[in-house]
Design a protein around this nucleic acid. Structure first.
Length: 275
DNA sequence: AATCTGTACAACCGCGTGTGT
DNA sequence: CACACACGCGGTTGTACAGAT
C-alpha cells in the first residue's frame, strides 16, 4: 500500500528532545488531551513528527510513569509473562502499571536476558539451556550454570520457574517457543486452559475491559491496582514528578494551571480524552 | 590522565492492523 | 472491495555514561 512516511522529512527534527520541546508537548497534552498525534506537533508548535511526540509522551513524559529500575517483583512478573506471552512487550507492560513497553524491552535485553542465561535458562524458550544440547536430564551442572548450581532452586524459590513437568506441552504455553503463541493467543485459542488455573495467566488472559483499564490510554496511577483504601491524589502519585523533576527545569515550567487545574485535567482524561 | 570497552536507555524505523471513505 | 491514513508494536540503532585498562 503506497504508504507515506509518517512525516515530511523536511523540517522535522530528530534526535534527543530538548527541555523546551518537552515543555511544549506536556503543556499541550495536559491542556488538550492525547489524540490525533499527527496534529499534535503542529498544534503544540513542535518541529517533530506525531510519531515522535507519541513516543516521547508514552515513554518518558507521561506523568504516571514509575522511574528507576524494575523491582524484583516486577522483574519476576516480566519473566513469567514473557514465558507465556513472548516478546509482546506492550501486553507485558500492560500488567506493570507505570512501566512502558520500551522500558521493559530494554530491561529485558540488558538485564533479564543475561540473568536468565547465567541461571542456565534460555531466555527465548524459558527452558534450561542444557536441555537443548541433550534431551536426557542432566544431573551435573552445566558450564553455563557455573557458580549458580542452585539455579533451578532459585527459580523455584522465587517463583520464576515455569513448570515444565506438571503439564503437557499443549497445556503449557511456555513449553513451546513464545513466538509460537502469538497467533493462538490473539485468536483466543480455546484448547489452552492454563490461564484459568494460573493467576498470572488469568491476569494475562483476562477480559479486555481489565486490559483496557491497565492500558496506557491514561490510567490512574497506582489506583488501578491499589486496593489499600482511599485512592491517593493524582497530583501526589502521578504528576508529582513534574514538580520535582530537576532536569526538567520545572521551576521555569509554566503549565498555566495550578494543582487543582491539573486534577481537573486528569479527570478530563479519565472521562474520555477528546480533542 | 587518556583511551578503550561495555552497558543502559532514549529514540528511530518499518511493518501490521484497524478504521474511514 | 480497494484504498488511504493513522496508530501502535517490536526490532534495531545511536549515544551518553561508567568502569576497566
Amino acid at each position: 500500500m503506497g504508504r507515506q512516511p509518517c512525516c515530511d522529512k523536511l523540517g522535522v527534527k530528530k534526535g534527543p528532545w530538548t527541555t523546551e520541546e518537552d515543555k511544549k508537548l506536556v503543556n499541550f497534552i495536559l491542556n488538550n488531551g492525547q489524540c490525533c498525534w499527527r496534529a499534535v506537533p503542529k498544534l503544540a508548535g513542535l518541529l517533530r513528527c506525531g510519531k515522535s511526540c507519541r513516543l516521547r509522551w508514552t515513554n518518558y513524559l507521561r506523568p504516571d510513569l514509575k522511574r528507576g529500575l524494575l523491582t524484583e517483583d516486577e522483574e519476576q512478573l516480566v519473566i513469567d509473562l514473557h514465558a507465556r506471552l513472548g516478546n509482546r512487550w506492550s501486553k507485558i507492560a500492560g500488567r506493570l502499571p507505570g512501566r512502558t513497553d520500551n522500558e521493559i524491552k530494554n530491561h529485558w535485553n540488558t538485564h533479564i536476558k543475561k540473568k536468565l542465561i547465567k541461571m542456565g535458562i534460555n531466555p527465548a524458550t524459558h527452558e534450561p539451556l542444557n536441555k537443548q544440547e541433550a534431551d536426557t536430564p542432566k544431573t551435573t551442572t552445566s558450564p553455563l550454570t557455573d557458580g549458580q548450581p542452585e539455579s533451578e532452586d532459585t527459580m523455584a524459590k522465587t517463583g520464576l520457574v515455569v513448570d515444565t513437568s506438571s503439564s503437557s506441552p499443549e497445556e503449557n504455553l511456555s513449553s513451546s517457543p513464545p513466538e509460537n503463541c502469538t497467533s493462538s493467543n490473539e485468536s483466543g485459542s480455546t484448547s489452552d486452559n492454563s490461564h484459568e488455573e494460573d493467576p498470572i495467566m488469568r491476569l494475562a488472559w483476562d477480559d479486555e475491559a481489565l486490559l483496557n483499564s491497565l492500558s496506557w490510554d491514561f490510567p490512574v496511577p497506582e489506583q488501578s491496582y491499589n486496593n489499600a483504601g482511599e485512592a491517593s491524589s493524582v497530583v501526589e502519585n502521578g504528576f508529582g514528578w513534574l514538580f520535582e523533576y530537576q532536569d526538567f527545569g520545572v521551576e521555569e515550567l509554566d503549565f498555566g494551571f495550578d494543582h487543582v487545574a491539573i486534577d481537573m485535567d486528569i479527570h478530563t482524561f479519565l472521562m474520555g480524552d477528546k480533542c
